[in-house]
Computed example of a mutant assay.
Amino acid sequence: MGNATMGEGRACSPILERLVGDSGEASQVIGAGRSMAERALPLLQKSLVETGAAVTLELRAVEVGRVPEARARAGDCFAMAVVASAFSSDAMTMVLDAPAIAIMVSALFGGDADMAIVPIERELSHVEVDVAALVFQQAAEVFNGSGRRSLELKLPIAPALSGPEARRRVLRDGAAVRIVIGLSTPTETGTLTILIPQRVLLTRRNGADAADDGEAPGHWRARLSEEVMRSSVRLDATMPLGRLTLGQIAGLQKGQVLELDKGAPVQARLWARSKALFACEFGKLGENYTVRISGTQDEGQDFIDSLARQAGI
């Protein structure tokens, strides 16, 4: 009798999920996940190429699954990110396996794509975790979408997890859509796995479909855009000087001249509300100091430069 009761409890779990709207028909879920993946994949490919990673992406599978299965096929060495949204603490779970991380590190640091890549069979280094975090951030941005169908992910995402921390992280069980993306070079291949709970995926799609039935507030959107374009923000131009200890900073005095490090960037950055917009050069016009815009800010190159400084290259 006791065994029968336990069996019934397990069988009721999917039924309860259906009753509370946490899962849907498999065909509907897979269709929604595939549409999202097919829209996002070209954008992710472009984003990685602009960052400097010439890797090939392919959509390998879209299937129903459970959130805790995110780590099931990643092996012992992987990186993971759990992304929160405005209405869920775990709206997206992403896992990058060791071959994919090795491919990305090699691509970002100029490795020969036609040569075999040494596999990672140890705990990830800080640089490798940072590279995985870059992939997770770009994937979250393109999968997030916009408008009424947006997942409303909280960006930028939280730091990536690896090692014991990633293996011990408790993942809330629930029905999900599992999107498997292959990252490859001519000699190597790895996997990025993305799981989105069905309660998140179906809620956003159903909400968007319901909103589509109403009148689109195009005139309000146009007015809002016009007002936004007229708003003013403060611009700040900064130039990194290098690294100083707290003791050195405490000893700075008026009139002291600070020497730039040999490898310090020579260009200034033009910022608005903590967002770097342009690369600039300092100058002088008559009695006024000036900043001349030399180009748009290359976030990908800045990321690679920061990794190179961390690695001592």
Results as ranks from 00 to 15, higher is better:
Ala107Ile: 09
Ala61Gly: 08
Gln256Gly: 02
Ala250His: 14
Ala54Ile: 05
Ile30Asp: 07
Gly190Gln: 09
Leu151Tyr: 00
Lys275Val: 01
Leu48Tyr: 02
Lys284Gln: 15
Glu38Ile: 07
Leu246Lys: 10
Val127Asp: 14
Asp114Val: 12
Cys280Ala: 12
Glu38Ser: 13
Ser274Leu: 04
Thr191Trp: 08
Glu38Gly: 06
Arg223Met: 14
Leu153Glu: 04
Arg243Met: 12
Glu50Leu: 06
Val67Ser: 08
Ser306Pro: 05
Leu108Pro: 05
Ala102Ser: 15
Thr187Phe: 01
Arg18Ala: 14
Gly163Cys: 10
Arg10Asp: 09
Ser13His: 12
Leu192Ser: 04
Ile293Asn: 01
Pro186Arg: 02
Cys77Met: 08
Asp305Ala: 14
Ser125Glu: 11
Val291Met: 02
Ala250Val: 02
Pro99Val: 02
Ala107Cys: 13
Ala272Lys: 06
Asp302Phe: 04
Ser23Asn: 10
Val95Glu: 12
Arg309Trp: 05
Gly75Ser: 06
Asn144Gly: 07
Gly21Met: 11
Ala311Gln: 05
Ser225Tyr: 11
Ala211Ile: 08
Ala222Arg: 15
Glu58Met: 09
Asp22Leu: 12
His126Met: 12
Gln253Tyr: 00
Arg223Ala: 14
His126Phe: 10
Gln310Thr: 13
Ser106Pro: 11
Lys275Asn: 01
Ala210Gln: 13
Glu226Val: 07
Leu258Trp: 00
Gly286Glu: 08
Glu25Ile: 05
Gly110Arg: 10
Gln253Leu: 03
